[in-house]
Amino acid sequence: MSNPIETRLNELGITLPEAAAPAANYVPYVISGNLLYISGQLPSENGKLAVTGLVGKDVDVAAGQRAAELCAINILAQAKAALGGDLTKIARVVKLTSFVASAPGFYEQHIVTNGASNLVANVLGDAGKHARAAVGMAALPFNAAVEVEAIIEISA
């Protein structure tokens, strides 16, 4: 039987990277009951940070959306690692929380966060429709433009 999530990733031209190791004293994910908590993911691509700076100053909204999309790709990579390679165990993305490094006066964090929300919904369909928060921050680790964390319901 084919894996519909892997098929959809292929259709979208997305190859999930290897799940990144933590950059400090934390674990990349925790499973508690039927919930998978994924630590904040940065906009890394090909093993390096792809989008840095403050959105609204150094980074425009479109680049911020791409950063959020990369964060979502890295969330799916962590989920794949946590679930033994089987993304079909994702029952529902419950919530995404997006942190946007924002220039003073920037107020379009919700539009930037659509990069992550759209990717997750496009890949997972109804299971990817989620609650969320989009929060402006003064700065993020490594000068990343965006960081996104996730709570995902999983099946046995």
Rank of each mutant, 00 (worst) to 15 (best):
N118T: 11
A133K: 14
N114I: 04
N118A: 07
F142V: 14
G128S: 07
L119K: 08
A121W: 00
V120R: 06
F142S: 15
N118S: 04
I111G: 01
N143E: 10
A131G: 08
V120S: 03
N114Y: 06
A138F: 10
A139L: 13
V135C: 08
L124K: 11
A133V: 02
G115R: 06
S117V: 10
N114V: 10
A138W: 02
V123W: 01
A116T: 01
G128F: 01
L124C: 04
A131M: 09
F142W: 04
V123E: 01
G128N: 09
K129D: 07
A139W: 06
A145S: 14
G128M: 04
V123C: 05
T113A: 15
A134T: 13
I111L: 11
L119Y: 06
A134I: 13
L124H: 02
G115E: 02
M137F: 03
N122C: 08
V135H: 02
N118L: 03
V120F: 03
A127M: 01
N122Q: 14
P141V: 07
L124T: 11
N122T: 08
A144G: 11
A127F: 00
N143R: 10
G115H: 03
A116S: 10
A116N: 02
H130W: 00
L119F: 07
L124G: 05
A145T: 07
G128K: 04
A134Y: 10
A138V: 15
A121N: 11
A127G: 05
V120D: 02
